[in-house]
Amino acid sequence: MTQFLVNGVPRQVAADPDTPLLYVLRNELGLMGARFGCGLGLCGACFVHVDGVSVPSCDTPVWSLEGKSVVTVEGLTPHPVQQAFLDEQAAQCGFCVTGIVMTAAALLERDPHPDETAVATALDRHLCRCGAQQRMIRAVVQAGRPQEASDG
């Protein structure tokens, strides 16, 4: 039995300790916002925060989470970066977006007003096949503009 917080709620997970977190989130806890894209931690579609760091949930085994705090996109919502994505219509198929939102939110914690280069660098672990990258970069920069950052 592994114990950890998910979106602030204590959870006891009975799954095999080697089970990737992604399956626990989606199938046991009903949190579908992290998506399965590759299962190898290479595409970014399944990213969640573990103790504030954006990581792939598809290759994070549950045993490694003992005592830690997991935040998924459901726990983050609503976040200014999501509103910025909607304002910029910064998506096409949207499949990569929740993972990107998680990494962007973590970036904004570290660096509240990133420029385009900082955003692109932070998002380089994420793939987008539809070609919406430039809109997403604009959206994250927008979310970090001082006048936008005060409201939620």
Partner: peptide, 11 residues
Amino acid sequence: LPDKVYGRPRY
């Protein structure tokens, strides 16, 4: 897009 950005079941 709202479902997709907020991570609701959609796919």
